[in-house]
Design a protein around this nucleic acid. Structure first.
Lengths: 215, 215
DNA sequence: TCCGTTCTAGAACGACTGATCGAGTAGGCT
DNA sequence: AGCCTACTCGATCAGTCGTTCTAGAACGGA
């Protein structure tokens, strides 16, 4: 019934992604996005409500892709009902290389996730619906981390979750950040580093919260 | 002979560091810095010339501290004339934990290095003197990376340097980034991940530039 | 005491930001 | 045909940014 859109929302998000893929968050302004898409700033505000809401939608789309790919990888490696430790390690490596796989399919989307932290990109003032969506994505990721920790060590306390998060989130982001063209395969680096991190179990809370071992 | 300064330059840099320690680079504006220090914007421009030059000075100071601490750690572990592989690994771990040590001595300075990439923080338009100083710091870091690669594998080709850089630069930045208070010791995580990365040597250029092994 | 130099203070400038507004337009529905 | 709604558009708002400018204050030396 209403007047049909002339600017595709997904195309707008694609353009925004492009502006953000290599540049600071300030590279995406309403004006620059309007210029890039051909839409006017008023249209963008009508479609998204605010710049922050647009950033939230952008992040939600990318994080959804990421979480889906991550689930697929973990499911594939963790199909047994009672996986052994080796399978759990393989699943963690699969989770840690999610970004590398996403990068093959959607390069700019992966770059968005690598180059910007969510906290710094999208602020708190969001519509309830979008806030709920982002919260759901965060919960989905947390669930996967818990699942991996349980498979690895049969525990999911805070120290264990931190180590898994370091493997799955922090480490790939660091090693896959696009700088000058790489010679070494990033996914292989991530795999090796993850195996190093998983070589010794995380400290139990009873140990005082300090990881025993190296250094 | 001239009128003496009333605002200490180092104190101004400290304040700027504080503004940048937890926040985006836009958190440091000339106005916010003037308000934080009590100096006027005119004074700041007289002292530093431009915002970019101020950022460059800030980065040079922090990077100098970092490089000094890194050299100290590597020298300590690599004092033998012909170090064996274990000593080289220890030296690489020491280099990788430089940020953790710097964090103990100067928390906000370490946060500055962790939270901002130089390319995104300070632009290209710099005075020749400062540009030269930054270039020297970069060369100093590169020299240390080359030294570590040579000690580890008796080579310093591009693949080897990338692996060492991943160990010493990327990985610590990722694992030491300040989020919610940590339970697990970050330096221990870095050490474990570095040992994982160094478990297998990097591919030789003849192998085609792709790292053999995991994943 | 006056001069030259160096520094400080704060107003002002132009550019750019996110956001808002009203007017106009294009389609489906009755 | 006429209307209603959703959408688009360009102009425009107030605010902040980095930077420049002007006036004057604080010093050592003559």
């Amino acid at each position: 019934m209403p007047r049909p859109r002339v600017h595709d929302l997904d195309a707008i998000l694609d353009a925004a992604e492009g502006l953000l893929a290599d540049g600071p968050s300030s590279a995406l302004s309403i004006r620059s996005l309007a210029e890039a898409t051909g839409a006017s700033s008023g249209s963008l505000y009508h479609a998204f409500g605010s710049r922050n809401e647009l950033l939230g939608r952008l992040w939600a789309r990318a994080a959804g892709d990421y979480l889906g790919e991550l689930r697929r990888g973990v499911d594939g490696a963790l199909d047994d009902a009672r996986p052994d430790h080796a399978a759990a390690v393989a699943a963690t490596v699969a989770a840690a290389t999610t970004l590398a796989r996403l990068r093959e399919a959607r390069p700019t989307r992966a770059r968005l996730l690598v180059r910007h932290r969510r906290d710094e990109l999208v602020g708190d003032a969001l519509s309830p619906a979008l806030a709920e969506e982002l919260l759901g994505l965060q919960r989905g990721l947390d669930d996967e981390l818990r699942r991996l920790a349980g498979a690895l060590w049969q525990r999911a306390d805070r120290a264990a979750l931190e180590v898994v998060a370091a493997c799955v989130v922090d480490l790939p982001v660091a090693l896959l950040v696009p700088r000058r063209p790489r010679v070494v395969d990033g996914a292989a680096l991530v795999g090796a580093a993850v195996r190093g991190l998983l070589a010794s179990p995380p400290p139990t809370p009873a140990e005082g919260g300090r990881r025993a071992g190296a250094t």
